Simulated scan of single mutants.
Amino acid sequence: MSDPQESRPASETRRAWQDLLGALAEIDADWIGPQRGLAPGREHLGIRGLGMALWGALDLYLENEPERPHFVRLISPYRKWGDNPDAIYFFAPLRGDLTYRVQGRRGREVYLSLTVHGGDRDGHWPTRVVAELNMDDMAFDADGSFEVVLSPEAHRVNWMPLEEDAGSVVVRFYFNEAQAASAQPELVPDLRIETVDGPEQVPVPDDETVARRLRRVEAWVRSKFGGQMLGPQPRRRPSWYSEVPNTMGPPVDWTDGDGGGWGAVDIAYSAGEYELGPDEALVMEGRLPEGLFTNVVIWNELGQTADYLERTVSLNDTQMELGEDRRYRVVISHRDPGVPNWLDTCGEPRAAVFWRFMLPAEPPEAPVCTVMPVDRVADGGQ
């Protein structure tokens, strides 16, 4: 006797779910292995990264609709992709033809901004910045409260224009403190979003609704492993990313001309990769420009930090020990060389080094990099 369910047409949700499972299997086969730069024995990094991307996609899209969005924290000490321990980021999906109100209150952050991205409707990779607003251009109440309107029509104060391809808003809170902001569970920014002209009530999710949300989940996961954000080679490198190991690229202000994405227009970036033997150290030296914030962080092949709750894998300019005229000397090595400003490789022989210079008062210089025996770092390599 045949199973009656075999002749029953699949629901849209089941088809979308099967497509999502197929995408995960495709990424597993195509991205998580040596053909994309993950050496044998390191597949666990890819699987962990894929799990985190799926977790994020479900959080951002499965129960979040642009008609009635809510803010979702993008990354945390436990969910990582391109993460920054000194910042707390929030995401909400948008539609370019609606009007939204974002409300919140200033706290201890040194930098606050909202960025509307375009081209990323339904979970796709953002291709451009539609609008950007930072705290210098915002009006605040006496208690630090603020209200920002996102809409196609102009408003007088704290307005961000929306265009047809607008798909998301990202809110950034940067902190310059002795302890990484993301490692402080009590540090929760005051932030919320509501739709001004959307539906009064969200309908109970039906088959079509859940299927549509799952399609967004699939698109988000694919965008992370499609050569854009996560995954080793090949992928497009921005102009500020050095292709030569143990060197950093020239700091450049972020623009979507480098391939789109979720960068901040107020930051100059510089990056490269270290490649060190067990007894080697990379020494980075230079002068920090005056500005709101600077930090340096180590990422693995999947754009993830190691556990910064337990190890020092990033430094901001409050945490750094600086010399005269804001001179710095940051050391990356597999073991503690006994000097200030040490970044722990956590045993990784090769990883990315990522610098951020927030609203620098002058153009920042690329760090000068030198590889030397780790035992010679304390005496300056002499």
Rank of each mutant, 00 (worst) to 15 (best):
I88P: 15
T209F: 07
P34F: 04
Y274Q: 00
F90E: 08
T13M: 09
E285Y: 04
P9L: 10
L20G: 06
G227Y: 11
P199H: 00
P337N: 12
I298M: 09
L302W: 09
V202Y: 11
M138R: 06
P203R: 12
W342C: 04
A366C: 04
R121C: 12
E163S: 12
E43W: 07
R95F: 07
D122G: 13
P40F: 13
V170R: 07
D317V: 01
L24P: 15
P232W: 05
G303M: 06
R121P: 15
T318R: 14
V157D: 14
P278Q: 08
P185Y: 05
G277H: 05
D59C: 10
D19Q: 14
G96P: 13
P34N: 01
E12A: 14
D136I: 00
V313H: 04
R48L: 15
G41T: 05
P234K: 00
D165F: 08
P77D: 09
H124R: 15
Q5E: 14
R48S: 15
R335M: 09
G119I: 05
T370H: 08
V252N: 02
E310C: 08
D375P: 00
H334G: 13
E280S: 09
L288N: 07
E163Y: 08
W342D: 00
L162F: 10
G249R: 01
A53Q: 06
P34Y: 05
N341P: 02
D97V: 07
L309Q: 12
D307I: 11
T247M: 02
P126R: 10
P69N: 10
P34K: 02
E290K: 10
P93V: 02
L133R: 12
